[in-house]
């Protein structure tokens, strides 16, 4: 009903004359004056670069007359993309980040969810202390978080390694097998509290009456948490998952800092590092193609995840 009504007003608005787009509202010019301050930079610094990267990714640089000839840029079709897909470094960076994401994202979100649920029960005291300590890392830039942790990973400086040596463990946080998880730990440290707070805010918005009936029926806190609370805050969990997927695919600062102290991180460790390394070698067209592929993978994964979960949850 209301849908038909709004559609009707829209039709009226559309045919209602050029000066006013709707009945008593402001003129089109006024509306534009509200929108343009945002949309002008949005187009210039968001949409134009996307278009430019797409265009660049279809160009190639060729040379005439061998090594000393002049170079010129020309249309190359999908040539750059073929190169991306034939590049072993690209696939290993994707593999690394995939492994990272499959482990780090669920672990982080699971811890965040448990914390949010516990903060929402009467079992816990000094809640604001726990909430603040968990959220604090969000105030720390990724670069600085990685610098802080790199001291805790460093064999010369780390008090953690001293402690672990004391109980007979000799971890090598920067070793070839471990360094990916050391980077994952930095991300987990940074973002758990942020995700926890999103879920916690959603939990706080649930009216208490919803639990009362279940409590009267003798449902345990545990059952209420998993059977009532978690399904209700599912949209928040989906949102945090999508943001985490996007963040994982953009990973740059943390591994770049760890690279400064570990030889086990190459300059092409993550897709984004690869794109930057290729751009630094002045191969902008190839870098653009890599950026486009990363963005496409991001879109496919985040939309795919949203579709999948919203279908299953019947939302």
């Amino acid at each position: 009903m209301t849908d038909i009504a709004t559609r009707a007003t829209r039709v009226v608005a559309a045919t209602g004359g050029r000066r006013r787009l709707n009945g008593g509202g402001p003129r089109a010019g006024t509306i534009a004056a509200f929108l343009i301050p945002f949309f002008l930079p949005f187009v210039l610094f968001y949409l134009v670069p996307i278009g430019y990267a797409l265009w660049q990714s279809f160009l190639v640089v060729r040379r005439t007359g061998g090594q000393y000839g002049t170079s010129y840029t020309t249309f190359g079709g999908f040539e750059q993309y073929v190169q991306v897909f034939q590049n072993n470094e690209f696939w290993s960076s994707i593999g690394r980040i995939g492994l990272f994401g499959i482990v780090q994202v669920p672990v982080m979100l699971f811890v965040a969810l448990i914390m949010a649920l516990l903060l929402d029960t009467p079992l816990l005291k000094i809640k604001s202390f726990f909430r603040i300590t968990a959220f604090m890392p969000y105030a720390v830039p990724g670069v600085i978080a990685a610098i802080m942790w790199s001291f805790l990973y460093s064999p010369q400086l780390s008090p953690l390694i001293d402690l672990l040596n004391g109980i007979g463990l000799h971890p090598d946080f920067l070793g070839p097998g471990a360094v990916l998880w050391s980077a994952a730990n930095v991300s987990t440290w940074l973002w758990t509290g942020y995700n926890m707070l999103i879920m916690f805010s959603a939990l706080q918005a649930i009216p208490q009456e919803l639990y009362e009936a279940a409590k009267l029926d003798g449902a345990s806190n545990w059952a209420i948490a998993w059977k009532i609370k978690v399904p209700i805050i599912a949209p928040s969990i989906i949102l945090t998952t999508v943001f985490s997927i996007i963040g994982t695919l953009q990973l740059y600062a943390e591994p770049a800092v760890l690279r400064q102290i570990s030889s086990n991180i190459s300059s092409t460790f993550t897709p984004n590092m690869l794109a930057y390394a290729v751009a630094s070698g002045n191969n902008y067209q190839q870098a653009a193609a890599i950026s486009v592929v990363i963005a496409l993978i991001t879109f496919v994964l985040s939309f795919g995840f949203m579709r999948l979960t919203s279908k299953r949850a019947g939302l």
């Binding site: 610094f45 968001y46 670069p49 996307i50 430019y52 990267a53 660049q56 999508v242 996007i246 695919l249 953009q250 740059y252 984004n272 794109a275 930057y276 751009a279 902008y284 870098a287 653009a288 950026s291 486009v292 990363i294 963005a295 991001t298 879109f299 985040s302």
Partner: peptide
Amino acid sequence: LVPTTALALP
């Protein structure tokens, strides 16, 4: 949803 790092190079 646009990864902002993808915008930096272009």
